[in-house]
Design a protein around this nucleic acid. Structure first.
Lengths: 140, 140
DNA sequence: AAAATATATTTAACACGTTAAACAATATTG
DNA sequence: CAATATTGTTTAACGTGTTAAATATATTTT
């Protein structure tokens, strides 16, 4: 019977938790001069590429217009290569350059350390439980 | 030993879950011509106001520069009143106008309906469990 | 094969996120 | 009390989120 309060709402809680988690990673990203989204896109293309832009957008949870801009900066920085698909002139196929791979290699250890400190702080099982629960709230 | 994959990372999972949840509310917000953040700020000021800008920013999980802009548009729309604190000329004290309250009243029923449909979809206990778990990941 | 439709990407416009710096008012220190 | 430091808010600059529209290429229909 009560209006949905801001105190205990799913959108707010998810926002705050994400903020809290990301605060641990932000200094590292800033130190290497990449945004959170650029780093996400770069890793997705590295782990699963070469991929179409659309696929990358989906897997990195970034909208198409944002991806266009992000790719532009990653291309300028020499981390990503964009070419046209042979069989379909609409598609842009993205892959990580050697330089991009080196960049990822340089950052990954720090990232692992941060993630491990989170695991120590919150407990691996609790993180796993949260990940499982969160997945159930995502419609595919 | 493995690099933290994008497939099962806390930041990504939180992002996706939030996206998924918000997608249910977006059409309603668009129909009433408010952004998610404007709606959040308006409700916080209504529920807990009058409040300082800093307090509102904290409770609505919005950064100060964003709040400045948001307040400006809510003020222009006649939903929020901004005055200077008597005892401290730096502080801006925010409150909801009658028109703002009427706006909230007009939307709240829809919002409740949407939240209820989420409860039916995901189950109240599961949502409560998620809220509890998320709270543990927020450092105060 | 031309026309209509659909798909992939980009552009545009506006709001917010983020960091740093400016500004204004208050509080503290010498 | 004047100088300095601190605090609350705003401005600036740039990147991303979001929706709608534009563009280019493929596919389907007639």
């Amino acid at each position: 019977m009560f209006p949905q309060s801001t105190r205990r709402s799913l959108p707010m809680a998810l926002l705050r938790a994400r903020e809290s988690v990301m605060s641990h990673f932000r200094p590292m990203l800033a130190a290497h001069n990449v945004t959170e989204q650029q780093w996400r896109v770069l890793r997705v293309v590295d782990e699963e590429g070469p991929l179409d832009a659309t696929e990358v957008a989906n897997r990195a949870s970034v909208l198409a217009p944002s991806l266009t801009r992000i790719i532009k900066t990653l291309e300028d920085r020499g981390f990503i290569l964009r070419r046209r698909a042979d069989d379909d002139g609409r598609r842009a196929v993205l892959s990580v350059t050697e330089s991009g791979k080196a960049f990822i290699e340089a950052i990954s250890p720090e990232q692992r350390r941060i993630y491990q400190s989170l695991e120590e702080k919150y407990g691996v099982e609790r993180i796993e439980k949260l990940l499982d629960l969160l997945e159930e709230f995502v419609e595919e």
